[in-house]
């Protein structure tokens, strides 16, 4: 009996296939969950940090506006102090944002912020350095220039904010899809394993249980004049071997019986 025909080999191969499939499913599950983890890390470490820094920048610009207002009202020392402190916060926020880039072209957005802020800050420091003090009204061209520079800088910061908010949305959707894809191998594996188990049950019944039952019935209904068991195991495996050996046993018994009958007759 070849090893490939052995029932033991077939059943073992069946279980090994099932284990292999479940193992691959497990690996795929881990890979997909790693993607989910990466997406979450990107959101937390980069996108959220960039949004936080953008808010600091906006806050810093508001502080500078407040400082400028104090300066224009005559409180030069306090105003200058606030403006310088806000500038420091702004620069720190820009630096931190530069270290947490995650979106496409995000560096360009940060460069734009630097460019617009530099123009804005240069203009303010020019105003602060004027010896004769500064006053301007709404119709003053200096006020108009100031407003344009202020809006331009804030627009650039808002663009960075929106970029990262969209990035979070994209990452969240990606996480949702990856999570679903991570679960899918498990679900499909469960269903396939159930089908596999049913198939295995069927094959074991067909190729192990039924032949054993048939042989059992044949043995119990055997009568001495019947030369062979009236059953045929058609597969070349352990069950066939059992059938062959039982038939051999019958032949040996019959042979012995014939010998004894012959001996008795002589006697």
């Amino acid at each position: 009996m070849k090893i490939t025909n052995s029932l033991k080999t077939k059943i073992l191969a069946g279980f090994l296939l099932l284990i292999f499939m479940l193992a691959i499913a497990g690996v795929m599950l881990v890979m997909e969950f790693e993607k989910v983890e990466t997406s979450a890390e990107t959101i937390i470490n980069n996108n959220c940090t960039s949004i936080e820094q953008a808010r600091y920048m906006l806050n810093a610009m508001d502080q500078q506006n407040k400082g400028l207002l104090l300066f224009l009202q005559g409180n030069h020392e306090e105003g200058t102090k606030i403006i310088i402190a806000a500038d420091s916060i702004m620069n720190q926020a820009i630096k931190t944002a530069s270290q947490h880039v995650s979106e496409i072209d995000e560096e360009k957005y940060i460069d734009k912020i630097k460019e617009e802020y530099n123009k804005y800050y240069t203009f303010i420091t020019t105003l602060l350095e004027k010896d004769d003090g500064v006053t301007f009204t709404e119709n003053d061209p200096i006020f108009s220039t100031y407003q344009q520079l202020d809006f331009a800088a804030k627009d650039a910061i808002n663009s960075l904010l929106q970029l990262n908010e969209k990035g979070i949305e994209k990452q969240t959707l990606s996480m949702r899809d990856n999570a679903k894809r991570a679960i899918m191998p498990a679900i499909v594996s469960l269903i396939t394993a159930a089908i596999f188990a049913l198939l295995l049950h069927f094959f074991i019944s067909e190729y192990v249980i039924n032949p054993i039952r048939n042989i059992t019935d044949a043995v119990s209904s055997f009568y001495p004049e019947q030369y062979n068991l009236k059953v045929t195991a058609y597969t070349k495996d352990e069950i066939k071997n059992l059938e062959n050996e039982i038939n051999n046993l019958i032949h040996r018994f019959l042979h012995v019986k014939n010998m004894m009958d012959g001996k008795n007759e002589k006697d």
């Binding site: 077939k10 069946g14 296939l17 292999f20 499939m21 396939t192 596999f196 067909e206």
Partner: peptide, 10 residues
């Protein structure tokens, strides 16, 4: 897997 399995037995 579902394809190979019957080939083993049948």
């Amino acid at each position: 897997v579902l394809g190979i399995f019957p080939q083993l037995f049948v």
